[in-house]
Design a protein around this nucleic acid. Structure first.
Length: 459
DNA sequence: TCTGGGGTCCTAGGACCC
DNA sequence: TCTGGGGTCCTAGGACCC
């Protein structure tokens, strides 16, 4: 991520004399996951809807109607059962195949409006509108909203500002303030003043709970106060990150648009188990599956991994003895081989495993990633074996890409058939289901990515 | 019974070298 | 034997984001 050091950077980032002053728009899908569900199920419109995290654990997306009855982000499902029943909240397991595809459609639509686009997350994109300064940007943003809605079905809010942080503020304010029509332009100083005065410092992008508490002790509780605070004092309190936010609030752009997606520096695959796990073999099977996912990502970005970490842990929400342990192994010559990774993960696991513990979660972390093309061998590495691995993996990837995920997999992942989601929650905890299979009892179909799930009209 | 998963960046401190 | 500073690299932990 490119960031200007405000210490060395006296003039703004775009210092070139002929380049237009930067203008950012942040487009954000409203209640994105819920909106995706609504696109394929119109009966959800105007209803309270929530989407749950993995294992149907807690709330990660909610519609305005769900917010209105007091359901909060992160609420555990099992604590809001009453409210769900009373208000007939429609509840869904997350369906990332669907959301990922809807996201791609939204981004493709946005790309029609500017060549300079940064896909920031699954439901957000920054657009550079610096080249459109001659136009009425509020009108332009309304047009963007209209077309995204028409072509994807997703409602959005758009915030405009001279910096990313101000565009973020504008976006949040646009969402809250219904009269703005989903668009707010914060390029004007007077508008900035009126919005920032009412905007909580804790809601500014980059200010989390810890930082908000520190600022409050300084007497800073609004975004306006933060903007007008002494930048050096803020730096002392919140490091350079906080100082950058102050400058951004003042309209000095420190965070640039990043159009190219850099390769990941770390790949994590970890999950809580659907049921308690005690046995080494079960952990091995779970980790084999996580390592498989991680290596697929690794190969997709054409990297090789030089460090593998494995961790296991108990349920941190449960009273009683806790256990966490992790171990690491390094590869002299980097690898992206699922087979090698699973073998290595097993080795680490045997070192950190203790008998008689109720495990709740495990995972693998691949780090020290470097280009696969630059793997360096020592005298003792078996280069022939390495070449064979690469060939085997590319065959496996090709088959899985054509025939579907896990058509071909390593034996250590377990032979268990894909579970049937028609089973209910209580049955899902029978030992027949592998521990690493996630609970998802309320998953919708993959309308956009599987032929057999295509929506039928008029039948 | 039931509480997500996957990322990034920054800083401080230790190890090591000259 | 004692004393000293400066530089780099690495890692763990904290904080934040979606």
């Amino acid at each position: 991520m490119h960031k200007c050091d405000p210490q060395s950077q006296v003039s703004p980032a775009h210092s070139s004399c002929c380049a237009p002053a930067p203008i950012f728009a942040l487009v954000d899908g409203n209640s994105f996951y819920c909106s995706c569900e609504r696109v394929f199920n119109p009966s959800l419109i105007n209803q309270p809807v929530i989407v749950l995290s993995n294992n149907d654990g807690c709330v990660i997306s909610r519609t305005d109607e769900a917010k209105a009855i007091g359901i909060k982000m992160g609420d555990p499902l099992h604590l809001i059962g009453d409210s769900i029943k009373r208000h007939r909240v429609r509840v869904y397991s997350s369906n990332y195949a669907l959301y990922g595809d809807m996201s791609a459609r939204m981004m493709a639509t946005l790309a029609q409006f500017t060549p300079e686009l940064e896909v920031y997350s699954i439901d957000e994109a920054f657009l550079s509108l610096g080249g459109f300064a001659g136009r009425d940007l509020t009108d332009y943003a309304r047009e963007i909203r209209r077309v995204v809605r028409r072509d994807t079905g997703i409602p959005t809010a758009i915030g405009i500002g001279p910096t990313k942080v101000l565009a973020k503020v504008a976006n949040r304010a646009a969402k809250k303030n219904k009269v703005s029509g989903g668009v707010l332009n914060l390029c004007d100083r007077a508008v900035q003043d009126s919005v920032l005065a009412e905007f909580a410092a804790a809601d500014v992008w980059g200010i989390g709970a810890r930082s908000a508490a520190k600022l409050a002790r300084m007497g800073v509780t609004t975004a306006m106060q933060l903007r007008d605070a002494d930048a050096n004092a803020v730096r002392k309190l919140l490091t350079i990150v906080g100082q950058r936010i102050v400058l951004e609030l003042r309209g000095q752009s420190c965070l640039a648009l990043e159009m190219v997606q850099e390769d990941r520096k770390q790949i994590v695959s970890s999950k809580s188990f659907g049921r308690p796990v005690y046995k080494l073999d079960e952990l091995k099977e779970a980790l084999a599956n996580y390592a498989t996912r991680a290596c697929e990502k690794l190969r997709r970005q054409k990297s090789a991994c030089h460090t593998l970490s494995v961790f296991v842990q108990t349920n941190r929400f449960k009273d009683g003895p806790q256990y966490y342990n992790s171990g690491t192994i390094t590869f002299g010559a980097g690898t992206a081989s699922t087979v090698r990774m699973i073998a290595a993960a097993n080795g680490v696991l045997e070192n950190i495993f203790r008998d008689g513990i109720e495990y709740k979660k495990a995972g693998v972390i691949l780090s020290d990633l470097r280009p696969a093309s630059a793997v360096a061998f020592s005298l003792f590495d078996d280069q022939h074996k390495h070449a064979q691995d690469i060939k085997a993996m590319s065959v496996m990837d090709a088959i899985n890409a054509r025939m579907g995920r896990d058509t071909l997999k390593v034996g250590a992942c377990g032979a268990s058939a894909k579970p049937s989601w028609s089973m209910n929650a209580s049955k899902a905890s029978t030992p027949l289901v592998p521990a690493w299979i996630m609970k998802a009892n309320m998953r919708t179909k993959c309308y956009t990515t599987r032929w057999q799930d295509l929506l039928k009209v008029g039948s």
